[in-house]
Design a protein around this nucleic acid. Structure first.
Lengths: 221, 221, 221, 221
DNA sequence: AATGAATGAGAATTCATTCAT
DNA sequence: TATGAATGAATTCTCATTCAT
């Protein structure tokens, strides 16, 4: 038989698919173009995936897998809010650099999907982190680690919103230009991390009690 | 008379265009459908706009005009950070309700545009508010109204990010589903506003405790 | 507006469709080829007919209308079996000459259709003549015009079978070749008519004259 | 051993080919499906047959061989017209039951082939029986067994036409539905045979009894 | 100037055929 | 020699754009 597509080829196909879908959008992306870019014929593409939708789903699935993978790394850290936040920010920066296409595709999908499909997708993609963040913040509030006059769900939402916009700002031309406009040029990763942590730290804590608690610790030192 | 009719028709045309582009996406939106919905022939549509792209640009322009209009209302308020924030949040909620199409289209564009065009667009859309927020925050820091150990540009960026995600969460099916997943159901507008203000207030160290802390520091100095 | 397709163009389109479908078969016939042959673009074809199937149905409908029209002419004659048969044979010959494509398409469809569709089609196409022939033969049997020991349905069936094969033999290359093989060359229309009438006349044992003639012959022997 | 397996496989391949071609039509039948059904790879199929057309020809050839075989059985009987006719009708009924695919494929071909190929095919398929029938009828006319005022070729043609339509009516969905429409339901094989024989007998004016019967009636009048 | 029918390039998808293994 | 994955031409159908009326 003619040589079967190697695993790498299949991976490349998905990567190119993700890239095309992210760049041109699911409608405009051309199956022929993706096949050509991957050095295969349209025929194989259709041997492996029933149709454009199925191929798109596969690209999306891979994207979500990768993003979930990046998330798990963060989740596995200790539960303290601040260190978690720092890890998350750095993960966003790394993923944006290494896997910008994934984020771009995610943005496209998020911007385009509608109706029940949107709901299904949101559950699938955001479910884990939503629950995790909410639980973590609720716990932190009980511990006195963060203020207790906040709604864990909404604060988790705001927290994730900041990370999400960070993602978009790193991966999308538009949002990057916007970020640069705000910062008066491309911001330094480290500085941005530091400032965002400061923003979050302050947002979450920073009730006098927490500060007092902190002060106590520091005093002890 | 004839002109007036045309003027009205043109406005309707743009509205329908915005609606279609926002709903179906720039690729999938049909020129014929838009013309029909507006009660004119495709011919006229092409008489006024060279091609689909040009028409799309016009729709975008109108969208941005409207959004800028909404923004100006907020900007014209007094310069105190907190009241500004509250006004902005409420403006977002109102616009999302009244002009969801504009926000949906904006999201589509932000997710799609690339290269130089993205930059141009971002400057045009975000320029004013970016500059305004940065200046306002810088001023507030000088006044001791907010912490002074923060970068005005980045904090303006974070602030606007939160508003932007709020917009998306109100107008896009996907982001709405995500918000509901975080909040365990559709959040109440008032509660959300309150909590977000709390978040911001704290982030900017508005809270008396933080201020007191600051004051102490400053007194020491 | 650009000139709307004239009625003639539309007629031509159907004719070319019928011709292509009859020649190449519904599967192989190419929409593009039909459009080109008709001097129009594929686009119009799809403006007038939803898809290939719809266009095919239109072609078939026209075919059946024409064939039914030819049939009606015969049916409107007086009810005597023999003159009806003669008219039918001559109609077949004329239609085969003038509208061979219709018969060819009919043959293709008859050969191809299956399942419930076949039943529906057969009812639509053959229903009228089946009922008519059966009634006419039943009546003729009562009148003593034809033998009364025959089943009107089956005899109508045999009668129509002979006409049907005549159709096929005139319009299909294969059946024409077969006919010529049987006859040792292309048969003369008049001779064929005469002989077929003789065959039918005898089969139905209508004409006392024919019987008398026979008697005479036999008596002579 | 190996060869035997191949021989079996080849037979199976042809059977499956005939079945597919008869069912789906030459255009729609899929080479891959036929190979799979036969438990071989497409590769071997193309090793044995240059292309789809060649394979189709082989299927056709086998079909014709089988049909000729069935015919020979009838032809080997004694030469009396009536018993020959009865044998032929019963053979048609049996073949339709046992080898419906052959007849369906034959019908497809007859409906599709055109030009020189049609002629070649008709000669090959119909040649023998055409000659046989003509000769037999000519002889019967000389013997006084049938009327002598008929053209042996045309009468043979009419006779074969009736058998052919019987074939079609037994094997094709369309023609079966048509037959049932004429008969008011599925006819009984025996009744059909009896009536068709009556029709033929009368057409050829064979039976002295029928004539006598008539004579009696007429005398009474 | 307005109309909307006609155009035709372009996209998805299929499947007979090839050929490396 | 057998395999069956890969190829890519061909086909259907869509819709932005044009232009005769």
């Amino acid at each position: 038989m003619k040589k079967k597509l190697t695993q790498e080829k299949l991976g490349e196909l998905l990567e190119n698919g993700i890239s095309e879908f992210a760049l041109a959008g699911p409608e405009k992306a051309s199956m022929a173009a993706i096949a050509k870019k991957s050095g295969i014929s349209v025929g194989v593409l259709y041997k492996y995936y029933r149709d454009k939708d199925a191929f798109f789903d596969a690209c999306l699935e891979k994207t979500l897998d990768e993003l979930r993978g990046a998330l798990q790394e963060i989740e596995s850290r200790d539960g303290r809010m601040l260190s978690g936040a720092q890890a998350a920010i750095e993960a966003v920066q790394r993923v944006a650099r290494e896997r910008g296409d994934y984020l771009r595709l995610y943005l496209k999908i998020a911007a385009s999907s509608s109706g029940e499909y949107a709901k299904k997708l949101a559950d699938e993609i955001e479910g884990v982190s939503a629950d995790l963040y909410r639980a973590r913040i609720g716990q932190a509030a009980k511990n006195g680690e963060v203020r207790d006059d906040l709604d864990p769900g909404l604060f988790a939402f705001f927290f994730d919103n900041l990370l999400m916009m960070l993602q978009f700002s790193y991966c999308s031309d538009y949002f990057r230009a916007r970020m640069e406009r705000f910062c008066g040029g491309a911001p330094d990763d480290g500085a941005l991390t530091e400032q965002l942590l400061k923003f979050l730290e302050s947002a979450f804590a920073f009730s006098s009690a927490a500060v007092a608690h902190h002060e106590g610790e520091e005093a002890a030192v």
